[in-house]
Nucleic acid binder design. Structure first.
Lengths: 191, 191
DNA sequence: TTGATTAGTGAACAAATGTTCACTATTTTA
DNA sequence: TAAAATAGTGAACATTTGTTCACTAATCAA
């Protein structure tokens, strides 16, 4: 069996189960008859950096999780070489720097359309105690989450939309308002 | 130690290592003296659905990977209750339906700004042999990746930008052109 | 075809894993 | 306070793990 196929089988298993298969499971997964075959195979994958070992335990390596990532466009002659990814990227790892204080919030409405945030997009929000003017923030206004850009004018704070059809909201206008966090990213899935 | 703290420690370990710690490792991680304490603790986490077991092996459960996810805005009275996520979401799992045929491509240029795709965004591209008119596609034009919307006019195909400053490109105008895939999603990280 | 290299086998092994048990310490309830 | 319930301990256990070894089968170059 092609080693690329085997790697993909490991990736699939890992995605499904959240863990690498044991040597015995791999034996069946790859249709081998001996555990030691797996052992040598895994050594090879460790050597290639796809997996790691930590006291006799097999772990995902650098490029195991994630997906082929084409960093930048390659100008020049097209050919099969360009089809090979230089790197792998996990969206979870890439997008979220502070896992312990990050939440995801789905956006409604088109008030931030000018900033490339469309209705239905999911924002990546880092829960912080404070934000500075210019930050894109999620604010809880009387029980409803709103995404806006924070602006300061003297001592007053305003929440600016990125859509000419909506007005800028003075924070002082809301009895109940609290900062949920700062928007660190956005994701969108097409239906 | 609070059980929530313990779960967060497990999550951290899992993010870092790509695997759950063993009972012995947990013993140290949680500062317990006996493995059987861990055993009972894990039973509890399994009962709560945070972890699963598959023939004596501990696996991440339903809400273990991923991040607190607030599906929709809750109108009504604000309060502590609304601060609790109903669900957890992994971006990798949510955004990518076909892991085996999906790649990530970083976008340059602002030709799709009207569709909410900004320069520097990463597109989630499903590699397909074909696309239908209306699909947002990545095309390899003479060695360079381009994101555009596919349009058909009679027998001719065009690549439409979402930016009035750019022209529509006739596919026939390029000696070397090939479909890379269909755009299924976009992600953006703020600096 | 020969010889050399690589890939796969199966038995044996020490170490580590999850599990069980009888027991003690701590906390909670009445 | 006493009684009941919960949380934690440590030794012992059967399994399973990854590992090693001597060996065979298959592949490839000359």
């Amino acid at each position: 069996m092609l080693i690329e196929t085997q790697i993909e089988k490991l990736r699939s298993h890992y995605r499904r189960c959240g863990t690498l298969p044991t040597y015995n499971e791999m034996k069946n997964l790859f249709s081998y008859k001996s555990k030691s075959t797996i052992y040598y195979l895994m050594n090879r994958l460790v050597r290639e950096g796809i997996l790691r070992r930590k006291d006799h335990k097999l772990l995902p390596g650098k490029n195991f999780r994630g997906f082929p990532y084409f960093q930048s466009v390659r100008a020049g002659v097209p050919g099969p070489a360009e089809e090979e990814a230089n790197d792998h990227l996990s969206l979870d790892q890439f997008l979220i720097d502070k896992p312990l204080s990050t939440i995801l919030i789905r956006v409604r409405g088109d008030s931030m359309i000018g900033a490339g945030i469309l209705p239905g997009d999911i924002t990546i929000v880092e829960r912080t105690g404070s934000a500075k003017p210019g930050d894109m923030v999620v604010v809880n206004l009387e029980g409803e989450f709103t995404v806006k850009t924070l602006r300061r004018e003297g001592d007053a704070f305003y929440l600016d939309p990125s859509n000419p059809n909506y007005p800028s909201l003075p924070m002082a206008g809301y009895a109940e308002h609290s900062l949920v966090g700062v928007v660190r990213g956005v994701v969108r899935k097409f239906s």
